[in-house]
Each structure stands twice: as structure tokens, then as C-alpha cells.
């Protein structure tokens, strides 16, 4: 699937949220699990049709790596940080560091979401130190 086939039917509300400045995730109607990335079935209990919710966009860095050997399309941006962030609502997602020294961000740091254009021009969630 090429980039121009995104968003897809599972992801459309998520990317629409990014365009509107909202970090959207899902919550299971049956077991209340926070679900990310969006999908048609709860990966915890198997209930279908999870509900959409909006995250406050606050969380903590769970893991981080500073990329020095970047894929060709991003070579001029290296070094840059890639994060896994645990959002306070109970889900984890990958994100980039929107600003600041990539060497300074550390596991455990509090971060908040912001939206920036990703490499394909679509607004995507990034994070800044909170």
C-alpha cells in the first residue's frame, strides 16, 4: 500500500484528529481497555467496535533512541530522537521529538503531544518536554 492510500478505513478518524489537533485513541466498550493503534477488535477481550476517545496528550517517555544512521529520505535530519511514549490514559505509541536536543530527552521524562507535518506532509503526533 502506498502512502496515498492513507488514511485507511481503520485509521481515518485518527488522522482526521491529528489534522484537528486531537490525539485520538480507542476504548473498548466491553473491558474498558485503552486501545492504540486503532482497530476493529479489542486486542485484550475480543469485543468489536471500540469507541473513539480523545487523549489529553500527556505522558512519559518509556524508551528512546537517537537515530544516527537514518533512512535516505530523512538523512539530512539525523541525528534525531524516536520515542515510545506511555500516555496517561494507558496506551503506548511511537513519536518523534518535535523540538529540543535529541541527546537530552531521557526515559521517564514527562512529555506532551504536539502536531507537526510528518515526512508525507500529513500532520502527525510529535512530543515536546512537558
Amino acid at each position: 500500500m502506498a502512502d496515498d492510500e492513507l488514511p485507511d478505513p481503520d485509521s481515518e478518524p485518527f488522522w482526521q484528529g491529528c489534522a484537528e489537533g486531537e490525539l485520538r485513541y480507542q476504548r473498548c466498550n466491553a473491558c474498558d481497555a485503552a486501545i492504540f493503534y486503532p482497530r476493529a477488535m479489542c486486542p485484550v477481550c475480543g469485543a468489536t467496535d471500540p469507541a473513539w476517545a480523545v487523549s489529553a496528550g500527556q505522558g512519559a517517555v518509556h524508551a528512546c533512541s537517537v537515530v544516527h544512521r537514518a533512512p535516505p529520505a530523512l538523512a539530512d535530519k539525523a541525528p534525531y530522537a524516536v520515542l515510545l511514549v506511555d500516555l496517561d490514559e494507558g496506551f503506548r505509541m511511537m513519536g518523534g521529538l518535535a523540538e529540543g536536543d535529541p541527546e537530552k530527552i531521557a526515559i521517564g521524562d514527562r512529555v506532551s503531544v504536539t502536531f507537526r507535518e510528518g515526512p508525507d506532509g500529513r500532520p502527525a503526533p510529535y512530543f515536546v518536554s512537558a
Binding site: 493503534y37 537515530v67 537514518a70 530523512l74 524516536v82 511511537m94 513519536g95 510528518g118 515526512p119
Partner: peptide, 10 residues
């Protein structure tokens, strides 16, 4: 992968 692709993780 669309949720990871923007961040350039090799």
C-alpha cells in the same frame, strides 16, 4: 506501520 512511519526509525 503508518503509526510509526513518520518518525524515521530504521
Amino acid at each position: 506501520y503508518q503509526y510509526e512511519a513518520p518518525y524515521g526509525l530504521p
